[in-house]
Amino acid sequence: MRIACPHCGDRGLDEFVFLGDARVTRPMADAAEPADAFHAYGYLRMNPAGPTDELWFHAAGCHAWLVVTRDTRTHVIASVRLARDVALELRAVASTTEDASA
């Protein structure tokens, strides 16, 4: 498998380290039921047969954390984004939702 790092370009799998599911978000420290929220964050995973968002680290390259959208059935990679960009987008969405519900 090869992953196209947004910084470095197309590189072999051996340059990357896999972490896990990028669709779980670390709960806020002041979450209502922190134990439950962190339990879900730490342990509950969907394990889909199909497209999934995964966190990979370009360990032997530029040291960027990446969100790789990969189909677990075919290994076909639909997109590779910088984790920082994705995280900032998620923050923006979360704060908009908060504003709306406030």
Binding site: L55, F57, A64, W65, A83, R84, A87, L88, R91
Partner: peptide, 8 residues
């Protein structure tokens, strides 16, 4: 990881 993903 903490810097790029958890607290960007």
């Amino acid at each position: 990881f903490a810097l790029q993903w958890l607290w960007p």
